[in-house]
Design a protein around this nucleic acid. Structure first.
Lengths: 134, 134
DNA sequence: TTTACTGCAAAGCATTTGCAGGGCG
DNA sequence: CGCCCTGCAAATGCTTTGCAGTAAA
């Protein structure tokens, strides 16, 4: 946890907190311009990378090659369609993974910042489509 | 679940079963050549895509942009280092997610094929390195 | 002044797509 | 005969990197 963040890292982190949703680097770059806080795209990527290593934000990879970033505040689990890529967040009363996470922490070998839990399959519309092709 | 697979889909699936490990499309392409079962790289990608939609295999995305494929046989959970990218499989006696997965199945809205559970943070070597930069 | 951060433009790289040839039914 | 599968090569798109200018300490 670095004590001091650079100017652009702060800018990125603030906007990320403000938006309070998962967002790609590219989209964040656009949002920054809108907010008159323009940063170079490379700088956005570098800031996100640094914040990730500081445990300030978390990342989730999409099958289209994008990465979505968000502040580490709560667990976000997803159901993602293998066909159309739609990703639906699951709000579970309580995360079934925390116990395991605590166990892993106690081994001391690995410093855990966050986790991702994702279910893959077919959403309703794509199920229909898929079966008609079978 | 398509009844009939193409020749190349069969070839890919067989080798995947035989290798019994997570493997990237590129590496699989090389393994196929070694096994005298050469397929075009595009064909490998297309076969993997089709097998994924048939629930025959599962995929896991890496932060370097690669996708790792494996047959759907057992849950594989991982701890992945944000810095060096090392990914350690966790063998847990029992998967803490199945109950939630069953609940989600019962909603009927989404047909679940498999899930991924991944913990992100720093491995021991990278913890040291990270702290010395802080 | 010395080091670290930033922006721009140029790669890098896994994956996808267009298209023509070939195989299978 | 017609349709789907394949392979090759070109294109795509996100992300990374080299380098020179700039701000910070």
């Amino acid at each position: 946890m670095k004590s001091q963040l650079t100017r652009s890292q702060n800018t990125v982190l603030k906007l990320l907190k403000q938006l309070n949703r998962e967002i790609s680097a590219q989209e964040l770059y656009i949002e920054l311009r809108k907010a008159k806080l323009s940063l170079g795209l490379a700088t956005v990527y570098r800031a996100l990378e640094a914040l990730k290593l500081n445990a300030a934000i978390q990342a989730r990879l999409l099958s289209n090659g994008e990465t979505l970033y968000s502040t580490t505040q709560q667990d976000r689990h997803h159901m993602t369609c293998l066909q159309c890529g739609t990703s639906i967040p699951i709000q579970d009363e309580e995360c079934p993974v925390h116990e395991l996470e605590d166990q892993l922490r106690q081994t001391g070998k690995f410093e855990i910042y966050y986790h991702t839990l994702e279910f893959f399959g077919l959403c309703s519309p794509c199920q229909v489509e898929q079966h008609s092709n079978a």
